[in-house]
Simulated assay, not measured.
Amino acid sequence: MENIIQQHAILLKDKVRMEAYKKAIFSSVKEGDTVFDIGGGLGILSFLALKAGASHVHVVEVEPGTWTLLRLVAKHNGLAEKMTFHKGLSTKIRLKKRVDLIVSELFGNLCLNENLLPVLIDARKRLLKNGGSIIPSGMKVFFAPCENRDWEFTTTALHNLDGFDLLPDLPDIDVGTPSMIIKNADLLSEPRVFIDIDIIKARSETAANLVTFNVSRDGLLSGFASWFEARLTGKISFSTSPNDLTTHWKQGFLPLRTPQKVKAGQKIIFELEFSPDPSGLNSIMGYHFEVK
């Protein structure tokens, strides 16, 4: 339980995240509404919905330990009788009646890398009333090529630790997409919008695009920085941009295995796709880039 609490404490202490979601829920919930909370965690979004006037909340959580703790926390706060607890993936849940509001916080540090898009589209199609609302209602994802001295230092250290190479260059090793602080000074071009999604209108569960970056200065291309703007409602949003207050997401970083020197005036062609993962937990991500 201790690790679960520590993990969720990081999310709950994120003031940017929490204040935006609280405002969005209180501006969206009407007295007597029913709500579906996807990825309930310790229940805070469900509890806020009930406090805002919802009559009942269906909450789904896939992680067994978190699901158990969620029920205990709800009972401790006297709210369990107004909640139905579902264990597993939201895509497997069936409800007798559709709900007025769907609320979820499934953002990864690249926004879409935790299967957010297919999960919300599925819930909208099957579980939301006509005219119902979804939080978040949309998102805009940005990418930019960048230098990252912290990452370069980390990988250099792993390549030679007491004479051992702990980071072999094998194509099937996934180094992940770490969350790191990226500064504007690290960027090698102006950022570009990768995709802008309206959840109510979205049809495709795959997000893909090709963008071209114009390199603005000489530098070492370490990878691609990413951040997003989350539109929770029409008027309430937050951003993980380097220009805004730091969140627990920081900025996402898509590292290259081998950093590459680039010069001002060159172009970087960047192609990226997020597609649904059959396991339902994370998106399948593939990307390609070319420097010209």
Rank of each mutant, 00 (worst) to 15 (best):
L69S: 10
G163V: 01
N113G: 03
L220Y: 02
G41A: 04
K292V: 14
P278D: 03
L158K: 11
I182F: 03
P278K: 05
R98N: 08
N282P: 03
N184S: 08
F36N: 01
D33E: 06
E19W: 07
E290Y: 11
N148Q: 12
L256I: 07
I236K: 04
E152K: 04
S222G: 11
K30W: 01
N243F: 06
N209W: 04
N148I: 02
I284R: 14
I5P: 01
A225T: 11
P178Y: 07
A49E: 06
F85L: 06
Q266Y: 09
L127K: 13
L221C: 09
K201N: 11
Q251W: 06
F153K: 15
L120K: 04
E61H: 03
D218K: 10
L112S: 07
M18T: 15
Q7C: 05
T246G: 00
H288A: 11
M18L: 11
L170T: 05
S179Y: 04
P118Q: 04
L221R: 12
K87G: 09
I236F: 07
P171D: 03
S204W: 05
I269H: 12
G252A: 09
P171C: 01
T34I: 00
A24P: 03
A74P: 02
G43T: 11
F289D: 04
L79K: 03
L158G: 06
I197K: 07
S133R: 14
L187C: 00
K51S: 15
L127M: 15
L89P: 04
R203S: 14
L117D: 02
L110S: 10
F47V: 13
H159V: 01
N184M: 07
D37G: 08
C146M: 12
D33A: 14
N77Y: 05
A225V: 09
F142A: 10
P136V: 12
I121C: 10
E273T: 15
L272K: 08
V57W: 02
V211Y: 05
G131W: 07
G88K: 00
S237C: 09
F194K: 05
L188R: 02
I5N: 04
L187H: 02
I4D: 04
P136H: 11
T84G: 00
E147I: 08
V119M: 09
V175I: 14
G219P: 02
S133N: 14
K250L: 15
R257P: 09
S46F: 01
N113M: 06
G132M: 01
I134C: 00
A9F: 07
D169K: 14
F36R: 01
G252S: 09
F228D: 08
T240V: 05
I5L: 14
T68H: 13
I182E: 02
F238L: 06
D165Q: 11
G39E: 10
K30T: 06
V57L: 01
I44D: 04
C111S: 15
A185W: 00
H76F: 08
S226T: 15
I268P: 01
P255H: 12
V193S: 03
L112Y: 13
T84W: 03
L210A: 15
